[in-house]
Amino acid sequence: MDNVITATNLTKQFGHFTAVDQISFEVERGEIFGFLGANGAGKTTAMRMLCGLSKPTSGIGTVAGFDIHTQTEKVKKNIGYMSQKFSLYDDLKVWENIELFGGIYGMNDQDIKVKTDKLMYELNFEKERNMLVASLPLGFKQKLAFSVAIFHQPQVVFLDEPTGGVDPVTRRMFWEMIYKAAENGITVFVTTHYMDEAEYCNRVSIMVDGRIEALDSPKNLKAHYSAKNMDEVFQKLARKSQRKE
């Protein structure tokens, strides 16, 4: 099996508090993997470890073939990252953002130029190319942020609540971009609070109090918990939480 992410007993403690408690799972190449959990369940901490930003207290993990303890710089080079909170620089133009991120990920100028032209055409963004990101509508920003996150063709892209706040049509168009990226072989690791989006994932894990309480395809999870949708599955599992914030 071609796994892009592996985690074995991955744990993170802050003092006496175990934020992530021995989680183990694999994500296959090209898979859309939904990483769900209530606020405070440990999702962000787990994601930070997988992105090479936070050292695990114990347990092992690899991302894009690199060790998340010892090869964090290589991990960072081979992943893309986007979140609702931070993605692009508002005070740079569209093309400047692309050039900046392309450069950070070590792409050469020629590649950046050719790919920028192609991307502007695909997104139908030729008019916006010279605009400041601050002046773009939110839906445009999100599309651009996602495109920038996968611009260097990473093996895996981490999306941390990417779709908050946009209108229903834009939210769906965004997911169609995610599908397309996955079809092009980019593995997608995504967190969301929209339970209908959980249905779009090949597999979903649900974290409760630092542990992975369930992991399967949405179809199997619904069958297993006799739930009619993922919201019910989530409500059943997350209500078990003992954690007092």
Partner: peptide, 10 residues
């Protein structure tokens, strides 16, 4: 409730 998980939203 923006950014709040489904259980807390409920």
């Amino acid at each position: 409730t923006t950014g709040v998980d489904p259980v807390s939203r409920k």
